[in-house]
């Protein structure tokens, strides 16, 4: 398995992915989020179509309360993952709203909890 991680900044992630993404060459897998040391790390994962286990993962970090760029116009499924991470991690993507995944009276950002 080949996983290439490409760190970038939140300011540049949109232009970097826009330049990289060809929907017939790369399959958009999902957006992943981690919360460590009061910082959010967001990962955009892609696999190469027709290649065995070839991954490209763009990652960018931001403070926990930052407004994050939405890629929903570029990757339609991103809207789902952005809404999910908004509820589970309080990752504040542009134009995302709370309540898509957890009811509004449900727990707040449960994945920010520590063991």
């Amino acid at each position: 398995m080949i996983v290439t991680k490409e760190p970038t900044s939140m300011e540049n992630v949109r232009s970097v992915i826009e330049a990289f993404y060809d929907m017939k060459q790369w399959h958009f897998v999902c957006i992943n989020g981690l919360f460590e040391n009061d910082e959010l790390e967001i990962q955009w994962a892609f696999t190469k179509i027709g290649a065995k286990d070839e991954w490209k993962v763009f990652c960018a970090k931001a403070p926990g309360d930052a407004i994050l760029p939405s890629l929903a116009d570029l990757l339609p499924t991103a809207r789902m993952y952005e809404g999910e991470l908004r509820d589970l991690l309080d990752a504040r993507f542009e134009n995302s709203r709370k309540g898509m995944f957890i009811e509004l009276d449900g727990p707040d950002a449960p994945l920010r909890r520590k063991r």
């Binding site: 957890i102 727990p107 909890r113």
Partner: peptide, 9 residues
């Protein structure tokens, strides 16, 4: 989101 059970947590 009607059957969220917090599996990842």
């Amino acid at each position: 989101g009607y059957v969220h059970r917090g599996v990842e947590l």
